[in-house]
Design a protein around this nucleic acid. Sequence first.
DNA 1: CTCCGCCTACCAA
DNA 2: TTGGTAGGCGGAG
Length: 165
Amino acid sequence: MKTPLVELPVQTAEGEFLARYSENGLVELDFPKAGRASSRAEKKKLVPAKILGWHALTSTALKNILAGRAAKKLPPLDWAGKTEFQKSVWRALLKIPAGGTKSYGEVAAAIGRPKAVRAVGGACGANPIPVLVPCHRVLAANGKIGGFSGGLDWKRRLLASDDTL
DNA sequence: CTCCGCCTACCAA
DNA sequence: TTGGTAGGCGGAG
């Protein structure tokens, strides 16, 4: 069976994000979804203190980034089940500072696979923890926006707050 | 093995 | 500039 996940909401000015945790850390972070509004106060009582602690880190990091500040401290990220390639791409993304950007090609070069450009795009799209793992800071080589699984609106919004430095 | 994608560089209009 | 294209690579089925 699978590791049970604990879901906890994060209220932000942009809406309610939803974080999912395993016993090893943050597994997923979802963008606010219309129709899912605040109706989930749920189980909170049964949530281990460990996870509540991580969630506090997730919340502050998320709010900091949305406000154009650096995330500072992140909870442990649980990338279990993901491929090495994806993990190396995401690790590289974590190194992009707020306000900075890289092209897919640069990320590919950074992980030692200069030709795996398109595959990097694939890994970005598979990123389960947007915002904290800043896939939005990766642009196309021509400086254009590129794509974004969470919707280009979000990508633009996130880049805009990044610029608030 | 085949098909697809948050890419790119290149060539033709 | 815009548009079509072929190469290259990892992931999913």
